[in-house]
């Protein structure tokens, strides 16, 4: 029972939870952890290659301190209980502030005695409304991020060549590159960004009798009549029946582009002697020892594919947040001007 003079503990908790200082502390705590995360390399979640790269980088940077940092949880901050607790507290604080804002807004709305929409607009508590909109935007933004972290996924560095349709394993999604490599076609619900474009070729070989020769990309690979080779780096393939090795070298300075020329070098096996060297610009062919190698330009694109199930919600939340902040800034500026006058 709340006796007169005593303080209701729930009321005190409510007041603390909705205070500006607590919100500021939560925001600063989250910002500090985010800054720390950019300084300390954070452990990647699943990819074993990325994990070994991360471990090598961490050991090179921190040496003997790496295990200590790992034990202290400094290299897994993004998935740490502390960071999640801060986000949850921020969400809770924003929720309480929205509820409180709604109640206060209801109390401040112009009454029935104010007639006419112009007068009602003039008496409308704009500052509180904008604050409420911004806080609602912030809350929805957090909910959107939560949904995305639970059900969203991202594939980085996916290489797709022109004419290929790549199915993303385990997701049901697919991506394909358009004819001009400027455009990516993809399944519904994906956002695809082209990080890099570069040259690539589709290769095949024929002998003097116009028979197709098999090509082999690696010793353990199955021989194939046609090979698709994205030229992210130098690429090699063999023509076992003609005892030839072909090396393809993309020629570019700085960032690669889809139209970069490609240097083709053909070596005899087992002597290792260079038989032919030629520069390809687009489609072309190279003849050596009665074998014709045909190259068709098939540029590649390095893609980042994102599935964000809360994309619409986050966009809406961001729009609310920005609208609320802009309105609140305007109200503050007007209040300052009125105070100065």
């Amino acid at each position: 029972m709340v006796t007169p003079g005593s303080r209701d503990p729930w009321r005190v908790i409510w007041r603390i939870a909705t205070s500006d200082v607590v919100l500021a502390i939560l925001l600063v705590g989250i910002a500090a952890l985010l800054l720390l995360m950019t300084w300390l390399p954070q452990r990647p979640s699943a990819d074993p290659m990325a994990y070994s790269r991360w471990l090598a980088e961490a050991q090179a940077r921190f040496g003997a301190f790496t295990p200590w940092l790992q034990r202290a949880g400094m290299l897994t901050l993004s998935s740490s209980l502390g960071f999640r607790t801060l986000l949850a507290l921020l969400g809770g604080s924003l929720l309480l502030r929205v509820i409180e804002g709604l109640v206060q807004l209801r109390g401040e709305l112009p009454g029935q005695e104010v007639s006419g929409w112009r007068l009602r607009l003039r008496h409308w508590p704009w500052s509180r409304t904008f604050l409420l909109v911004a806080q609602s935007g912030g809350l929805l933004f957090l909910i959107g991020l939560l949904i995305n972290s639970l059900w969203g996924w991202e594939v980085n560095g996916l290489i797709v060549q022109r004419g290929e349709r790549t199915v993303l394993p385990g997701t049901g999604g697919w991506v394909a590159l358009g004819e001009m490599t400027q455009q990516v076609i993809h399944s519904h619900g994906l956002t695809v960004h082209i990080d890099e474009r570069g040259p690539g070729v589709q290769a095949c070989a024929r002998n003097e009798a116009d028979e197709e020769l098999m090509l082999q990309y690696a010793a353990e690979a199955e021989p194939a009549g046609r090979l698709n080779l994205p030229l992210t780096l130098d690429q090699y393939f063999a023509v076992p029946d003609a005892s030839l090795i072909v090396r393809l070298i993309p020629q570019h300075e700085g960032r690669p582009s889809a139209t970069d020329p490609v240097l083709v070098q053909v070596y005899r096996v087992p002597s290792g002697q260079l038989a032919v060297e030629s520069v390809l610009q687009g489609d072309g062919e190279v003849r050596v020892d009665g074998v014709t190698l045909y190259f068709t330009a098939a540029p590649y694109a390095r893609l980042t594919v994102v599935h964000n199930p809360a994309l619409g919600l986050i966009c809406f939340a961001l729009a609310l947040l920005l609208f609320g902040l802009a309105g609140e800034l305007l109200c503050t500026a007007q209040a300052v001007r009125a105070q100065d006058d």
């Binding site: 919100l23 500021a24 502390i25 925001l27 600063v28 989250i30 910002a31 500090a32 985010l34 800054l35 995360m37 950019t38 991020l145 995305n148 991202e154 980085n156 994906l190 956002t191 960004h193 980042t304 994102v306 599935h307 964000n308 994309l311 986050i314 966009c315 961001l318």
Partner: peptide
């Protein structure tokens, strides 16, 4: 969000900007 489908485009600088923005609002 429209270009990459996510709030941060994976760059360190964007996390710095977000942190600074958050502290600014605090």
């Amino acid at each position: 969000l429209l270009q990459y489908g996510k709030v941060w485009a994976g760059e360190r600088i964007e996390v710095h900007l977000f942190s600074a923005w958050v502290i600014w609002h605090a």
